[in-house]
Write a protein that binds this DNA or RNA. Structure first.
Length: 443
RNA sequence: CGGAGUGUGGCUCAGCCUGGUAGAGCACCUCGUUCGGGACGAGGGGGUCGCAGGUUCAAAUCCUGCCACUCCGACCA
C-alpha cells in the first residue's frame, strides 16, 4: 500500500476522552472513530488488525473441528420467548420493532438462533458431535461503555456452539474449545490464563474465563505463577483424542486461578508466597457448558441408537476480536506507539522514502516495495513528502514490525537501514542485502 | 441508575467569572526555501460557540429546559 493513496488519519494530539493507552493509541493511529457511546467505525488500519485477529481465530477454530456459519444480527423475539430469555435478559438487550410491529432484537448472543438451526436439520445421534461458530457483531446496551473498544456496546464476537449426545461427549467438546483457545491466545502473543468463572445469565455449571494479565484490566485476578511458564498445546494436537485433551484441561486447571467473583482466599493463601500472583486482567474469552438449558425449552433432540429422543447437550464459547485489538495494545506498546505481534501487525514491513522526489531514492524504494509485494508481504510504502521525523513517528506509532529506511545519504554508498520496531535495533545494509533479507512471507 | 464534569473550526485548548458581534497552536490550501528523528517564511480557506427557549439595545458569556459525550461507583457471557 502506498501511503499517499491510503486513508490513515493519524492524530498528533490525544483526544481528551481516551483514558487508557489502547484507546489513546487506537485513536491516534487512526484505527477507529467513535460514532456514539460504545459504538465505533473501524478505519482501514484498525480493520486490517481486526481481520488478522479473526484469521488466527478461524484457523484455530477450524483446526479444532468447528464449522463456520454466519447468523444474523437481527433476531426474532419469538425464539427468545421460547427459551425464556426474552423476559430474563433485561435492558442490556436492544429491543426493536419492525414495520409490522413485530418484536425483534439486535442479538447480544446467539444460543437461540443456533439451537433453532440445529433442531431443524439435525435429527440423528450420528450427526453429532457438531460445533458451529460464527464471527458476527453483537450489541449489548451496557449502562456505561468505556475504554474504547475494550468495553463497547457494539462489538465483534466469535461465538461457537457445541452439540453432543450426552454430558461426556459435551465435556470433550468443551475440552476442544479449551485447547483451541489456549492455542489462539498464544498465537496472538498473549499469556491468557483460564480461570474458573461464574456462569452468569447463560447458565450451566462448567465455565472458564480466559484472562490476559494487564495493568489496565477491568477485574482483579489471582493465580499461581507457574501458569505463566506453561507450554501451549502443540499445533499437531489430536483434537479427537479424548484422553489427550482431558490431560491438557487437567494440567491447565490443576493450579489455583480465579477472578475476583470466584476468589477463594483460603485456597489462594495456601499457594507458596513466591508463587502467588495477584494482578489485574482483561477477559478475552469465556467458555460454558450449559447442558440442556436451551435444547429442553426449544425442543432440540436427536434420535439415539435405540430410537429414543435425546436432548442435545450444549456449550457456548466466545472470543471478542474487537476487544482483543485493545488487549494486544495494552500488552504491547511503548512511548512511540504500538508494538504488534508480527502475525497481527497491520503491515509486515514499511519502506520509508526519506526524500520522495529524489530520483535515486524513489527508484530504490520502488524496487524494494515491488519486491516485497511480489514475495507476499503486506508492505507499506511511505512515498509522501512528509518530513523524515514524521515518517519514523508514523511507522512506529502504527507499529510496523520491520522498517526499511531509504535516504539519499545512505544510498550514495549503496546502503539502506533496516529497523526492528520492537526494541528499535537498527542495521545498515546494502540495498541488495535488504532485498535478500526478506525472503517471502511464508519463509 | 447515583455522583462529578465537559460541549467553541478536523485535533488540543483559550475566551465565559466582569455581556459589546470569536481567538491560538497543530492540521489543511498556495508560493518559496528545505528535507537522515514530527522544518521555516509569506499568504489563505474553514466555526449554526451542542440544541431550544428566556433576559437584554446587545448573549459563546447570564437564566431555564433538553441533548450528547467523558470520568468515579453500581452493573456486566
Amino acid at each position: 500500500m502506498r501511503l499517499s493513496r491510503y486513508f490513515l488519519p493519524i492524530l498528533r494530539d490525544t483526544p481528551k476522552e481516551a483514558e487508557i493507552v489502547s484507546h489513546r493509541l487506537m485513536l491516534r493511529a487512526g484505527m477507529i472513530r467513535q460514532q456514539s457511546a460504545g459504538i465505533y467505525s473501524w478505519l482501514p488500519l484498525g480493520l486490517r488488525v481486526l481481520n488478522k485477529i479473526c484469521a488466527v481465530i478461524r484457523e484455530e477454530q477450524d483446526r479444532s473441528g468447528a464449522v463456520e456459519i454466519l447468523m444474523p444480527t437481527i433476531q426474532s423475539a419469538d425464539l427468545w420467548r421460547e427459551s425464556g430469555r426474552y423476559e430474563a435478559y433485561g435492558k442490556e438487550m436492544l429491543r426493536i420493532k419492525d414495520r409490522h410491529e413485530r418484536d425483534m432484537l439486535y442479538g447480544p448472543t446467539n444460543e437461540e438462533v443456533v439451537t433453532d438451526i440445529l433442531r431443524s436439520y439435525v435429527k440423528s445421534y450420528k450427526d453429532l458431535p457438531l460445533n458451529l461458530y460464527h464471527i458476527q457483531w453483537k450489541f449489548r446496551d451496557e449502562v456505561r461503555p468505556r475504554f474504547g473498544v475494550m468495553r463497547g456496546r457494539e462489538f465483534l464476537m466469535k461465538d461457537a456452539y457445541s452439540f453432543d449426545v450426552d454430558q461426556d461427549a459435551a465435556r470433550h467438546a468443551y475440552n476442544r474449545m479449551f485447547t483451541a483457545y489456549l492455542r489462539t491466545f498464544a498465537r496472538l502473543g498473549l499469556k491468557a490464563i483460564p480461570m474458573r468463572a461464574d456462569t452468569g445469565p447463560i447458565g450451566g455449571d462448567l465455565s472458564h474465563e480466559f484472562i490476559v494479565l494487564a495493568a489496565t484490566g477491568e477485574s482483579e485476578v489471582f493465580c499461581h505463577k507457574d501458569y505463566l511458564d506453561y507450554e501451549t498445546p502443540a499445533v499437531d494436537t489430536d483434537f479427537d483424542s479424548v484422553e489427550g485433551l482431558q490431560d491438557i484441561f487437567a494440567k491447565w486447571t490443576s493450579l489455583y486461578a480465579a477472578t475476583e467473583e470466584m476468589h477463594d482466599k483460603a485456597a489462594y493463601d495456601a499457594i507458596p508466597a513466591d508463587k502467588q500472583l495477584s494482578a489485574r486482567g482483561i477477559e478475552v474469552g469465556h467458555i460454558f457448558y450449559f447442558g440442556t438449558k436451551y435444547s429442553e425449552p426449544m425442543g432440540a433432540t436427536v434420535q439415539g441408537p435405540d430410537g429414543q429422543n435425546l436432548l442435545v447437550h450444549g456449550g457456548s464459547y466466545g472470543i471478542g476480536p474487537s476487544r482483543l485489538v485493545a488487549a494486544l495494545i495494552e500488552a504491547g506498546h511503548d512511548e512511540a506507539g504500538i508494538v504488534w505481534p508480527d502475525e497481527i501487525a497491520p503491515f509486515d514491513v514499511a519502506v520509508l522514502n526519506l526524500k520522495a522526489g529524489d530520483a535515486a531514492t524513489d527508484a530504490a524504494c520502488e524496487q524494494l516495495y515491488a519486491s516485497l509485494l511480489a514475495k507476499g508481504y503486506d508492505a507499506l510504502y511511505d512515498d509522501t513528502d512528509a518530513r523524515p521525523g514524521g515518517k519514523f513517528a508514523t511507522a512506529d506509532l502504527i507499529g510496523v514490525p520491520w522498517q526499511i529506511i531509504v535516504g539519499p545519504k545512505g544510498l550514495a554508498e549503496g546502503k539502506v537501514e533496516i529497523k526492528r520496531r520492537a526494541g528499535g535495533d537498527r542495521e545498515t545494509v546494502s540495498l541488495e542485502e535488504a532485498l535478500a533479507r526478506f525472503k517471502g512471507k511464508a519463509a
